[in-house]
């Protein structure tokens, strides 16, 4: 078997194109001062930490068993934040020609950079406002979750909970009209919807 060592030329060209677009994007984001901060605002995204590759086993994911619930799902707090709201998406790199016309003079180019940066910032602000509005809405409009629904601790935020109660050595969390307790699965601590603690 002959093993190819080099990148196909198409891949190399694509890499250069992508790299150029990143450069333009970065330069635009940095703005006239060249420093970070200014208009390049990267919000904290809620990401998944676990996937098929995290198993690190010499076989793929376990065969699906009927009725078997996936060990982790999109977190409750994530759903509280984003259900119905657009998920934050990173800005797409603009092609160099679309971002700054090559014929533009240096002053014009700078102005275009600034305008684009301002627009981006305004767009981010709008997105954040929408997210906040949905979060508030869902905080008020509580919903019951199915017993056994499980969320990864990576999404868990105690601030979203109204109460933390310890009964018989078990900590229960009251959040958004549901009770949760912790359980181990998939190598991490998860939060699972359970019946509330008994008061007797």
């Amino acid at each position: 078997m002959r093993i190819q060592r080099s990148l196909p030329s198409a891949v190399a060209i694509a890499a250069v194109a992508v790299f150029f677009s990143i450069i333009v994007e970065e330069a635009m984001a940095r703005g006239p001062g060249g420093g970070r901060g200014g208009s390049h605002r990267v919000g904290r995204m809620h990401h998944h930490r676990m996937g098929p590759a995290s198993r690190g086993n010499l076989h793929a994911r376990p065969r699906h068993q009927p009725g078997m619930r996936r060990p982790t799902r999109t977190g409750s707090t994530e759903r509280l934040r984003t259900r119905g709201a657009p998920r934050p998406t990173p800005a797409r790199p603009l092609p160099p020609t679309a971002a700054v016309p090559p014929e533009a003079r240096p002053d014009d180019r700078q102005e275009i950079h600034d305008q684009l940066a301002e627009r981006r910032e305004a767009r981010e602000r709008r997105r954040e406002n929408i997210r906040d509005a949905h979060r508030d809405e869902y905080r008020e409009r509580r919903y019951r979750e199915e017993l056994g629904t499980t969320y990864s601790s990576d999404y868990w935020d105690d601030d979203q909970c109204e109460a933390e109660v310890v009964v018989d050595g078990i900590t229960y969390y009251a959040c958004g009209g549901n009770w949760y307790r912790r359980a181990y699965s998939n190598g991490e601590v998860n939060y699972v919807v359970v019946e509330g603690p008994r008061s007797d």
Partner: peptide
């Protein structure tokens, strides 16, 4: 705190 494995719940 002792917690269960999820499969137990």
């Amino acid at each position: 705190e002792r917690i269960p494995f999820l499969v137990e719940i």
